[in-house]
Structures are given as C-alpha cells and as structure tokens.
C-alpha cells in the first residue's frame, strides 16, 4: 500500500516534472539523486557465461558514497574469502590463501572481474554521471514497456574511460534501464540492459542487469541483486586495509 502510494507520488511529481524538464542535464541530475545513496550493503550474484560453462559468483559489498567500497566474495568455494577494497581510485585485493594484500596496478585494473564482461575499472568508475558527462535529449523510446527519455551523454573531462554514452531513463522511476557505452570514435563498446528493477526502502534499484562487451563473443554477464540496504551506518574501520585481513 505504502509502496503504491510512493509510486503514485513519484508518478505525479514526474508528470509535473515532465512538463518542466527540458534539459538532459536536469534529467541526469534527477537520476543521480534517485540512484545514489549515502551507504549501501548489497548482496549480489554475477552469472558469467563462459565458452564452456556458466559460473555464478556471489559477493557482499559495503559501499560508502561513490568512492569507497569493500567487497567480500562468498561463492564459489575457490573465491570465498577473497576481499577487495576500493578507496577513491585505488584498489587492493586480499587472498586468504596467500595472506597477502596486493594493490592492483593500473594495467591490471583493465582486466576482467572474475572472467566477466566487467573490468575492475568499470567497477571503480565514479557513478556520479553528472560529474562526468553533459547530457542532451534524444527522441523518447520505450524499454521493456516503460516510457523512457533517451539521453546522449558526452564527456566533460578528459580522463574518462567512455567518451560518450547513451542512456534510457525511466520517465517515472528515474532509473536507467539501458545504457550504451561508446569509444571516442563513437563505436559501441559495451551495453548494459536492466532486465528487472525492485523497490527497496522506497527507492528504485536495479535487481537484474546484463553487461555485454560487444566486441567480444559471448552472452554477456548477468548481475543480480539478492538484497540491498540503503543508508545504514557503516563503521569507518571497514574501509581500511586492515579490514581486509580480518
């Protein structure tokens, strides 16, 4: 009931917004506000379609703002206990079998995470899109039956992985439902399709998504959120290198 009320409110407010918002940047700001939170604790799985088999990796992640994240892998058995810590643009990994904390160097960040279509760099990207891109609107479109704004984003600064993006934003929920990532030459490199969303603590969040590196052969990587909790208080010690060995 409460959920429906909220949806209604958002719908009404967005209707009124629809009339007012004309600029892509404004929409992007709204998306950013709708999608980001102070902290979150996410339990997720990643389904990786390899050439010979399908693997599922489960992880729990504690995130503070957009800059810091602490992730612990829970399954499969081989990855269990592997931890990663991201503080701004630095990334460390801890492997229990070696009991060593190793900083992932610049070029290793470009490698894929667990054999998926995502790189460590993709994971570490600053998700505040308005900081990185300016947006202009394209003709509207529908994704999975939902009306969307289509925004063409182009980079505001130089040191950015994807020079331009195209995002499909749900007009009512302000959540991105589809994203295309382009090279500087405007060649399509990666696609993200959000296949399912969920409402948690009165916010819309991604429940399932498929990442695909379009240059590479394969079915892409499925990303599923099992549970998500927003704005819990997370103690500072989580985001220290010492916590990796704990």
């Amino acid at each position: 009931m409460r959920l429906r009320f909220y949806s209604f409110c958002i719908a009404v407010s967005s209707l009124s917004l629809q009339a007012q918002i004309v600029s892509g940047d404004d929409i992007l700001e709204k998306v950013d506000r709708a999608m980001n939170s102070k902290t979150r604790i996410v339990m997720s799985t990643m389904v990786i379609h390899g050439r010979r088999d399908i693997r599922t990796v489960q992880a729990q992640s504690w995130q503070r703002g957009t800059s810091d994240a602490y992730t612990e892998y829970l399954a499969p058995a081989r990855e269990k206990g592997t931890k990663m810590l991201k503080l701004n643009d630095m990334l460390w990994t801890y492997s229990p079998s070696t009991d060593r904390t190793i900083m992932i160097s610049q070029h290793m960040l470009r490698q894929s995470v667990m054999g998926s279509d995502l790189s460590y760099e993709d994971m570490m990207e600053d998700p505040h899109l308005p900081n990185l891109y300016s947006a202009v609107t394209s003709p509207d479109d529908t994704v999975n039956g939902r009306a969307c704004w289509v925004l063409d984003l182009s980079a505001k600064k130089e040191d950015i992985a994807y020079y331009s993006r195209k995002v499909w934003v749900d007009k009512v929920r302000y959540i991105i439902l589809r994203e295309h990532l382009f090279a500087k030459s405007a060649k399509l490199l990666k696609t993200v399709d959000i296949t399912e969303v969920m409402n948690v603590q009165n916010r819309w969040a991604v429940k399932s998504a498929v990442y695909k590196d379009v240059l590479k052969e394969g079915k892409g990587t499925e990303f599923n959120v099992l549970s998500i909790k927003f704005d819990d208080v997370l103690p500072d010690h989580i985001f220290t290198k010492a916590s990796l060995r704990r």
Binding site: R78, S97, S116
Partner: peptide, 16 residues
C-alpha cells in the same frame, strides 16, 4: 613470492 595471474575462467588468481 606471489604470482598474480588469472584462472582459466578469468578470475584473478593470487598464489604464493
């Protein structure tokens, strides 16, 4: 020493 490589599935592998 530690060898950082990747498993046959593409995961990062860290071994002493």
């Amino acid at each position: 020493i530690t060898l950082i490589g990747s498993t046959m599935n593409g995961s990062m592998s860290v071994t002493n």
